[in-house]
């Protein structure tokens, strides 16, 4: 009796406390590293940007249409870079959204289990290829094909970049959308089949609407990936910051500009170098906003199945 009592009472601190207290701090420290790193990045970006905006007015930065921070005459309008990023983002979305969605519908609704078992990992491998390889693929394959069709196309052009980024983000759209579609309960499919709907009708007017929040969230995440994409576009689109509607022209994205300055020999206290932080901060805010919109869409339109 008394023995049983002593084995279950705490001798000051519980077994759980003594053993797990330490482990808990190990895990906490690891989590802390991530949080601190993120904070550090933000602080560095903000600090550099503050220095930049001591020399350049925010209005000029946000509204100017000419970007030339290292070559005279200096000009600090970021819009050409934003435009470059926009073209890549919109162009890649035009490719990745239809193809990715169709792939997701195929995998979730049409593919036999055996086929799905092959295609899903293949897509994941596609998603894991280093982006520099995609850039090389754009230069050595996509651009020549475009040049074959439109001979006046230069070595560096926006179209090639948009296409390669589009291909790159297809797995993201298809994989996340497929997850959302597969989680639509079979009861809904059965309801539609029972009413004499075809597979196509079940897919398009039951499964897709019911999984719309997840599907749209996948689009937004893919777009934010396109905005942040660096190596492939640096290789494919060149370094010509300009606002042009012609997709066969060379452009420059925000990310490609950061690569250019990062590897160039501009002096660390020049405005050109400081512009890196302003552009970086702009990019950070853009992708952060996209990710937040994606989270919001997902929670706002979460379908209630009971």
């Amino acid at each position: 009796m008394s023995q049983a009592d002593t084995t279950i009472t705490t001798g000051g601190s519980s077994i759980d406390d003594r053993k797990n207290g330490f482990i808990k701090y190990v895990f906490f420290s690891c989590a802390l590293v991530t949080v601190l790193t993120t904070l550090g990045i933000i602080l560095v970006l903000i600090q550099g940007s503050i220095e930049f905006f001591q020399h350049v007015s925010i209005v000029e930065y946000l509204t100017g249409t000419n970007w030339s921070p290292v070559i005279q005459p200096y000009s600090y309008g970021v819009l050409p870079l934003v435009w470059g990023t926009l073209i890549i983002t919109v162009g890649s979305a035009l490719i990745a959204i239809p193809v990715g969605t169709a792939t997701a519908i195929y995998l979730s609704e049409y593919a036999e289990p055996r086929v799905r078992k092959v295609i899903k990992p293949t897509l994941e491998i596609l998603a894991g290829i280093p982006t520099i390889v995609y850039g090389f693929f754009a230069l050595s394959f996509i651009t020549p094909v475009i040049q074959f069709v439109f001979p006046q196309t230069g070595t560096f052009n926006a179209a090639s970049g948009a296409i390669v980024v589009g291909i790159m983000i297809i797995p993201m759209v298809s994989s996340l959308s497929e997850d959302a579609m597969s989680s639509v309960p079979d009861e809904l499919r059965n309801a539609a089949y029972g009413l004499g709907a075809t597979k196509f009708e079940v897919s398009t007017n039951v499964v897709v609407p019911a999984s719309l929040s997840g599907v749209v969230a996948s689009y937004i995440l893919a777009l934010s990936r396109a905005i942040g994409e660096t190596m492939a576009v640096t290789l494919a689109v060149g370094m010509t910051p300009q606002i042009t509607a012609n997709p066969l022209d060379s452009i420059q994205t925000m990310t490609a500009y950061m690569v250019q300055i990062g590897i160039s020999d501009v002096s660390v206290d020049s405005i050109g170098y400081q512009s890196l932080f302003a552009v970086g901060l702009t990019l950070f805010i853009l992708t952060l906003a996209m990710n937040m919109i994606s989270l919001w869409v997902k929670s706002r339109y979460r379908e209630e199945y009971q």
Partner: peptide, 28 residues
């Protein structure tokens, strides 16, 4: 299945309006 309708064990309305639920079979 257009001639033989079915009602399931667990109520399974579509996440759509009442009107669209009833009209779904008519549409397809």
């Amino acid at each position: 299945r257009r001639k033989i309708g079915m009602v399931f064990q667990k109520p399974n309305p579509f996440p759509k309006s009442i009107r669209d639920n009833v009209a779904y079979g008519l549409r397809v």
